[in-house]
Write a protein that binds this DNA or RNA. Sequence first.
RNA 1: GGAGGGUUAGCGAAGUGGUCAAACGCGGCAGACUGUAAAUCUGUUCCUUCGGGUUCCAUGGUUCAAAUCCAUGACCCUCCA
Length: 397
Amino acid sequence: MTFFEELKWRGLIKDMTNNEDFEEKLNKGGMIFYWGTDPTADSLHIGHYSSLLMAKRLMLHGHKPILLIGGSTGMIGDPRPTAEREIIDKEEVFKNAECLKKQVASIVGEDVEFVNNYDWTKDVTFLDFLRDIGKYINVNYMLSKDIIKRRLDTGITYAEFSYTLLQAFDFLKLFESKNCELQIGGSDQWGNLTSGVELIGKKLGKEAYAFTMPLILDATGNKFGKSEGNALWLDINKTSGYDIYQYLINSSDEKVEEYLKVFTFLSREEIEDIMKKHKEKPEDRLAQKTLAYEFVKDLHGTEEADAAKNKSEALFGKMDTDSLEIEEIEAKVGSNILDVLVSAGITPSKSEGRRLVTQGGISVDSEKILDPNFIVENEVVVIQKGKKVFKKVKLTK
RNA sequence: GGAGGGUUAGCGAAGUGGUCAAACGCGGCAGACUGUAAAUCUGUUCCUUCGGGUUCCAUGGUUCAAAUCCAUGACCCUCCA
C-alpha cells in the first residue's frame, strides 16, 4: 500500500486538486506543505486534531511542515455558513497565536516552521492588494464558492467576502518565498485552498497542490468533539486526558472504525484485527478502548493515557473511587446537597440540582439521593451525576 | 436615495394587549432498557430562601395590565433607484 493509498484507506482525503503528478509527489516525500489556523481561541480543540495528525502523517513520510497562524485572517474571520463572525481584538489574536504555537509544537514536534500571515499582510496597502491580488481573481469565481453562495441571501460583509483572497495571498507568499507547494485543511476550507491554487496558477503560471480532509461527525451527525455541550480542548489544563478518554470510549459501534483510522497511527492490519475481535464480542468494547487509549497516548503521552485508563476502569468496573483526585470546594460540612452540587461545579444552579435530585440523577457515596433537603455530613464525599460524571470533593469545615 | 419586512430561551421557530416563564422541533441533561454503544420510551430544560423574582434587540412612553401598542436608536434582510 502506498502512502497515498493509505490516506485514502483511512478516509482522510475528501477533495484534492486535479494534478497529474500529485499522487506520485505525495508518495515520494519531500514536499513543503502548510496548513493554517486562525487564532480565534487560546487552545485548539479536538476538531483541529485530525489536521494536526495529518501534518504528522505527512511529516513521517518525509514532507516538511509549515504552520500558518492567521494573525490577519483571524482579525477578519472565515465566513461561516450561517452568520457573520464577531470581530476579535488585536491583542487577543496575538495572545492566542502564541498559545497555539506552543501547543502545536508540543503535539506535532519541534520540526514545524511557524509563520504568521500578519507579517506579510500588515504593510500591504489596500491599493496594492487590489492590483496584485484582486486583479487575478474574478468576482464570479468567488461568488460561485459554496460558502459565499450560501451567505448571499442572509448577507455577507465585504470583509468576510474578501477572506478567501487573503488566504489565497498567503499561499502565494509561501509558494514564492518558501517553495511551499501544498496546502491542506478541513473540508470546509476547500474553497479557500482552491483560491490559492487559482491565484498561483494565474499570477505565476505555476502549479500548486491542495487537498482537504473530511469533517469528522459523531453518530448523531453533529460535529465531533463536543462533550456535555462543551468543546474538548487539546490543552490538558482545559480538558483532562480522562475526559477525552471517556468521550472516545463512548463512541458508537458504527463510528469507531472510522475514528480508529483517522485518529490513530495503528496500521491497517492492527485496525482490521481489532475490528474483527470487536465484532465478535462488541460488549467488550475493545475498539472503543483501543481508540481512547491510543488517542490520549498520542496527545498527552503514555503516562496520562494509563492514568485515564485506570481511572476509567476503576470507576466503571469495580466502582473503586480511590483513583479520583480530591477537589476542595467552598461548601461547608453540613451543607445542603444543592449547595454542594453548585459549589463542586456539577450543576450550574440550584434549580438544576433540585431537578436532578428529584429525578434520581444524583448519588452521594453510592447512595441515591432523592431528597433535595439532604444534608452532607461527611467531609469527603464522592458525588455521582448520572452514570458517567464522578467527583470526589472535600468540604470546608 | 425610496419602499417593505425582521430581531423571541443554546439553535430553529410560534405567539400580535391579560389565560405567557412564553406552543412546537432540534440540541442538552436525567430516568428505564443496555455493552460506559446505538435505537426506543419517559421526565426535564431562566433563577429561587418555592413566597416569589427577572426575561422576548436597547432606551423611553401609553395602559390597571406589554413579547404583543407608540416613539427613538442599533443591527439585519428583500425589492426598486
